[in-house]
Structures are given as C-alpha cells and as structure tokens.
C-alpha cells in the first residue's frame, strides 16, 4: 500500500537512551540531575524535558516540580517536592532518600528527530 501520510519528523524515545542521572534528597524533596549522554543531546533535553512535563510524568507521586538548567554540564536539575513520604528518617519508603528517583525519570519518553532515534536504536 502506498504511503500517503507524511512520516513524522520525530519519534518518541525514552530518556535512558539520551541521558544519565543521579538523585538525592533534601528533606521531603528529591532532586534528579539529568545529564545528556552526548553534549549534542542537551538542547533536545532542554526543549522537551520541561518542568510541566516532568510533573505530569510523576503525577500522583510529587506535589510540584522545579527545573534548573546547567548547560555547562549538559545537565538539568529537577526538584521533586513532597516526593519522599516525609523524607529522611520519617519516610517508610524503600527509597526514603530518593536515591533511585533518577532512574524513574529515565522512563519518560520525549520526541527526538527520527534520524537520531534511528541512530540510538542501532547503538
């Protein structure tokens, strides 16, 4: 069957293929530092991984999200508020200090240019 629709310019790709991350805690707030695996991915992260989208990704798990940019490190820093069931010693969670919240963010998918998506799939 001949293609009639124009191919989309982007494909959805999970952040794990574009970034690495580390997280920690400050009281009941978890932070996630999201770092581009290659510097050239950073502008895509900056454009697509917005605070509102991250808040949507974590809906029901956090009360609010703040984002800070560190282009010098090809990194974004997210503060996830009320993410830790009270945090510190009060929290009953397995991940009371938010150590692996970082990997939960890496589940999020963002649109990336198709050519790059293909390259990432081959790697």
């Amino acid at each position: 069957m001949p293609r009639t629709t124009k191919r989309p310019a982007t494909r959805m790709v999970q952040l794990r293929y574009l970034a690495h991350a580390r997280s920690g805690d400050k009281g009941n707030t978890a932070n996630v530092g999201l770092i581009a695996l290659e510097p050239e991915y950073y502008p895509i992260l900056e454009r697509e991984v917005t605070a509102p989208r991250v808040a949507r990704h974590f809906r029901g798990m956090v009360s609010g999200v703040e984002r800070f940019e560190l282009p010098n490190l090809a990194a974004l820093n997210f503060l996830l508020h009320d993410a830790l069931d009270g945090g510190g010693t009060i929290s009953l969670k397995t991940d009371a200090q938010g150590k692996v919240y970082s990997t939960a963010l890496l589940r999020m998918a963002i649109p990336v240019p198709t050519a790059l998506a293909r390259r990432l799939a081959r790697a």
């Binding site: 690495h20 991350a21 530092g33 490190l73 990194a75 820093n77």
Partner: peptide
C-alpha cells in the same frame, strides 16, 4: 567527566 558530573548534581538545589 561523567563520574564528576553525576556527583556534582547529587543533592543539588538551585545550582546558582
């Protein structure tokens, strides 16, 4: 650079 960057963002608030 990756190992140092991961530590830099650990427990970070407002980076400025």
């Amino acid at each position: 650079v990756a190992s140092v960057t991961e530590q830099l963002v650990y427990e970070m608030g407002d980076p400025r």
